[in-house]
Design a protein around this nucleic acid. Sequence first.
DNA 1: CACAGGATATACT
DNA 2: GTATATCCTGTGA
Length: 189
Amino acid sequence: MSPALAATLARSVHQAARALVGCTLTLDGVGGIVVETEAYAPDDPASHSFPGRTNRNATMFGPPGFLYVYRSYGLHWCANVVCEPEGMGAAVLLRALEPTQGVEEMRRRRRVEDVRLLCAGPGRLTQALGISLEHDGLDLFRTPFELRPPDAAAEIATGTRVGITKAGERPWRYALRGSPYVSRPLRRG
DNA sequence: CACAGGATATACT
DNA sequence: GTATATCCTGTGA
């Protein structure tokens, strides 16, 4: 991984969640620019890691830079980047991408025309990239994944997290300011 | 073994 | 705006 990105991942989930916005993520060459993330800290009631390590969330307690995938509402897959401090269950939820590579492949998988809807939401993003449980525990810095930092620092807008029932007031949602590819407008934060 | 509940997307009113 | 699909995990009997 790039030294700059490694250093930022090592700070905190919040630093990492900011640093990931603007990065380019692909799986088998299909993907785009990360435009929206959410931080899930240790000691965070909304985090899957909060009740402690289990079989499902084991990846969260592993090394940073790996992918944690879980099924949401019995329907969708959600993808998270494991962060420092290692072993504490800190992770960043990937909520939206700006599609830049393999757009036609994503359209086929999602069966929608509008590019803005291809990866706008955690479930949509995983469907477009073809991420599922088989990718849980894989290193994002190794093939078939590619994760590289932006050329210039992204301008970040913050807001409250989405779709959770605990600690929803925490402004731990980070987005690329002004991007039309976010899953929904930011509120507060 | 049974069952509640969840970091959502979509279709429909 | 709200209904609802759909399934796996974690917890407790």
